[in-house]
């Protein structure tokens, strides 16, 4: 029962979605709309599960005075502050001027943006290692990245400023790389991903792939 019922549910819901695509009429369209809302509600609970688990682990860390327990206390306080303020504000909790919006604008956004901005330094370090022309393929990587970067900044004016204003050589090359060569590579990757996704989805719906159920 621990494994069979989940497999039946998986197959039923998966097949319902597939049928809905081929027969987009009542009752299948209503079933699809209902399942979409169900998925959204269950996914929300899954994210709640993660958030509550973080809270649980942080409480355990503080109660057992584990190493760096103070930072777990900071997590608990900031978690509860954001969640309680957001819930107490009502459905318009994200509107400008609310306390939730103040927390979001002045604390969450700067932290999030700085966290990702820090990656600039690590990307620079990674670029140094990746952009070494050790072989032909690595040289292609280097040249493509350099040309795309050059075409997107002011290098055209700096290097080719003496040419007529509408002769943007680096921008043109950059556009060609992005719109033609990059499109070709991206499409190959996208088609590969799509075929992989289709085969994995079929395996899941047919019950061949069961790793999501765990081992016990």
């Amino acid at each position: 029962m621990r494994r069979e019922i989940p497999l039946i549910i998986t197959a039923t819901v998966g097949i319902a979605y597939i049928i809905q695509y081929f027969i987009p009429h009542t009752p299948f369209d209503k079933v699809e709309a209902l399942f979409s809302d169900w998925l959204s509600i269950i996914a929300a609970c899954a994210i709640w599960l993660g958030a509550l688990n973080l809270l649980k682990l942080s409480f355990l860390s503080v109660s057992k005075r584990k190493k760096d327990w103070f930072f777990s206390l900071v997590i608990i306080i900031s978690w509860l502050t954001m969640a309680l303020v957001g819930i107490s504000e009502g459905p318009g909790f994200q509107e400008p001027g609310t306390k939730f919006d103040w927390l979001y604008t002045n604390i969450y956004t700067p932290l999030s943006a700085t966290m990702f901005a820090m990656l600039a330094f690590y990307v620079a370090s990674a670029s140094y290692r990746a952009f070494r022309a050790r072989n032909f393929q690595a040289t292609l990587l280097l040249v493509a990245a350099f040309l795309v970067l050059s075409g997107r900044v002011l290098f055209d004016e700096l290097i080719f400023g003496f040419l007529p204003a509408d002769w943007k050589i680096l921008s043109t090359i950059s556009d060609f790389i992005m719109q033609v060569l990059n499109t070709a590579g991206q499409r190959a990757i996208l088609i590969g991903i799509a075929l992989g996704t289709v085969s994995t989805s079929l395996r899941i719906i047919l019950g061949i792939e069961r790793s999501y159920l765990g081992s016990d």
Binding site: F71, I75, S78, W79, A83, L84, G86, F93
Partner: peptide, 25 residues
């Protein structure tokens, strides 16, 4: 970092409460 982690979890908790559980359920 701890503030960021806590706020992120709290943000999603509150957002999903109103946008998914309240609005859809």
């Amino acid at each position: 970092e701890a503030i960021f982690v806590g706020l992120s979890a709290g943000y999603w908790f509150a957002s999903l409460f109103w946008q998914s559980l309240h609005a859809k359920f």
